[in-house]
Amino acid sequence: MVNGLNLLFQFLDSFAFIVLAAAGLAIIFGIMGVINLAHGEFIMVGAYATTLANIRAGLPLPAAMLVGVLVTAGFGLVVERVVISGTVPNALSQRFLGRKVIEPLYDRLADSMVATWGLSLIMVQGVRITLGNSLDQIGTPLGNIAYSGFSYSTYRVMLAAVALGVLALTYYVFTRTEYGMRARATIQDEDTARALGVDTERTYMTTFAIGSGLAGLTGALYAPTITMVPGLGSSFLVEAFVAVVVGGPSVVLGTTLAGGLLGAINATVSNVLGTFFGRIALLVTAIVMIRFLPDGITGFVETLRERRQEGA
């Protein structure tokens, strides 16, 4: 019984981590076809901004987290304009050379990997040079839940609720707002969307900013629990990529299901066999899932649905 409660908390912890790590990446990869290898560094920006706002500027934690999100979203906007779509360099080159020099990175998986890899090098080293090898850390708020000899950090369990909230919010944004409709139209068929008057450029820009903002949120939320070193992003990267791939094309549902499945496996195996096997189990599950469901979970669901419609 007690171990069941342990397992529940560990699962919620793992679920939250995977979902929050993957959220921003799923949006950017799913909608723009860009693999952002600097995703971990965006998380780092959010965590650093939050920590600096809280410790150096003295803002209360929730306000500091908001600062973290906004700073990262703003940074994402800049990156999108300069690197991903190349609008700013193109505008400049148009003026001086009379032609565009950069193609947007949308749907160019390999090229976006190289570009964002370069970006991540610049970000990590840039932060190291300007802010040093580490920052002082914010303490974890909210105490703990104690039960018959065990205890779990309340904050970490609460993150699971936050993760669900993020998913719900993303779902709302993508299905109920103007922007969401435009974004889904652009994913489905960019040319038609543009022909129908959708400003696809602005849609991409907003999408990247939202994805970056979500990464910043992850950083902000986890800032009180991890060490603030410039390379902190790399500990999120594996889970993020694995979840995005296992989840499949549907951003919200895929991330939720992937978080649930991988979180459950990781938590259960860690609980029984230790963290080493938990990690191996996570990675092996990913490989097996991709082998048997190459389109991810939601892709598989889609195929089933199509097949059933055809059969009916």
């Binding site: 560990q10 981590f17 991890i226 500990s235 609980n271 230790g274 963290t275 080493f276």
Partner: peptide, 16 residues
């Protein structure tokens, strides 16, 4: 005894 991979940063189950 528990041995934790260097890349691991989540210790919920270890603490339990």
């Amino acid at each position: 005894e528990e041995f934790i991979p260097l890349s691991n940063s989540q210790f919920g189950s270890t603490i339990n």
